[in-house]
Amino acid sequence: MTQAVRTEGLFKRFGQQVAVAGVNFTVPAGSFAGLVGPNGAGKTTTLSMITGLLRPDGGLAEVGGVDVWRDPVQVKARIGVLPEGLRLFERLSGRELLHYNGRLRGIPKAEVERRAEELLRVMDLTGSADKLVVDYSTGMRKKIGLAAALLHNPAVLFLDEPFEGVDPVSANILTEVLQRYTASGSTVIFSSHVMELVERLCDWVSVMSGGTIVAQGPIDEVRAGRSLNQAFLDLVGVRQGGEEGLTWLGSSSH
């Protein structure tokens, strides 16, 4: 199986703190892959380095067998990105944002307009297409961000926390679009905290903790009979506590 994404010893430090300590991250082409890990595990940093937004201090990152940092033209044409924190051009309307993004990538205007209208319709954003993005709700922002990332039909899609703060209706739309997209053989890689979602959607999972990959593979292998949540807690090594203290909490003390 060919690899859609492969990193080798990817490394990044911020001052004293090592954020990503030699990550070997692989995702087979055509998979719906989840990147899970606790806060501060280095998920965002890893994804930023693979998408060419953050320069690694060491190691290799490849998308479709092409080095991200040596041949950016090829890589950038094949990837779509939805970064964390909803960083979008706030003062454009949703429709204008899609037009801007498509034309920036050199897609002819008529084609951009056609694709944008379809995306807006599928994402259920037609009614708010002419409102400024700054006035969008979280779910709407994630949807317009995904639409922008899909506009040029990338082979690999990177989504950083696409479901964070999204209402169930919007989340449903997002997953439907993504499932359709992977069904055609494209690759989706998304980071998340929500194990149930990863379990439901993904066929490949990578678990990060403390800046390294602690487990990686087809989801059933990583789970090994447990629920993904339990497997994750075991892998990350969580302290099982919460019994001592807090004696006043709850209705028994009244």
Partner: peptide
């Protein structure tokens, strides 16, 4: 403030004059 009004949908005069592509997109933005 989230019930803000919509913006006008327009592709300005410039968009028609400038050759389609990146420069036109950036100018419009």
């Amino acid at each position: 403030s989230t019930q803000a009004a919509s913006v006008r949908r327009s592709s300005g005069l410039l968009d028609r004059i400038l050759p389609d592509g990146r420069v036109a997109a950036v100018v419009a933005k």
